[in-house]
């Protein structure tokens, strides 16, 4: 059972990250590249929270009921880090989208292979 959970949680997160990486590498449209970057973000957050999980654990918040039952709590550090990472991910996505809008207005296209001075 635990094997299955390991594979399903970590596997989902890693597959999400790879999907995002594929979109960022192979897609031609700038908007799709930004979407790919934010999919990488989501996979990373899922991976972090999955690493911090404890079986049958509660959220790391002390209410009177939890204090009485003395149940185990999941690791709060990955959750705090993910909280930071979500905000940073929002900031980078916002700036990237603004750059995409500017490029689209300047070149009248969002495809990177039609923008000549971006070709590799």
């Amino acid at each position: 059972m635990n094997e299955f959970l390991t594979i399903s949680f970590y596997g989902t997160a890693i597959v999400l990250m790879l999907i995002g990486l594929y979109a960022a590498l192979a897609k031609k449209n700038l908007l799709k590249i930004v979407i790919g970057l934010s999919i990488i973000d989501s996979g990373l957050h899922l991976l972090f929270v999955a690493v911090g999980f404890i079986s049958n654990g509660t959220a790391p918040i002390f209410s009177p009921e939890v204090l009485e039952s003395a149940q185990q709590m999941v690791d709060p550090v990955p959750q705090a880090l993910v909280l930071t990472a979500i905000v940073i991910g929002f900031a980078t996505t916002a700036v990237a989208l603004a750059l995409v809008i500017r490029l689209y207005k300047h070149h009248n296209t969002a495809a990177i292979d039609e923008i000549k001075n971006l070709k590799w």
């Binding site: 970590y10 596997g11 690493v51 999980f53 079986s55 185990q72 690791d75």
Partner: peptide, 19 residues
């Protein structure tokens, strides 16, 4: 490398760390 690194981490076990 992601699979190699993370599938060795046991899922749902309690660990001794700063948390």
């Amino acid at each position: 490398f992601l699979v190699d690194a993370f599938f060795k981490v046991p899922f749902g076990e309690k660990r001794d760390n700063v948390g």
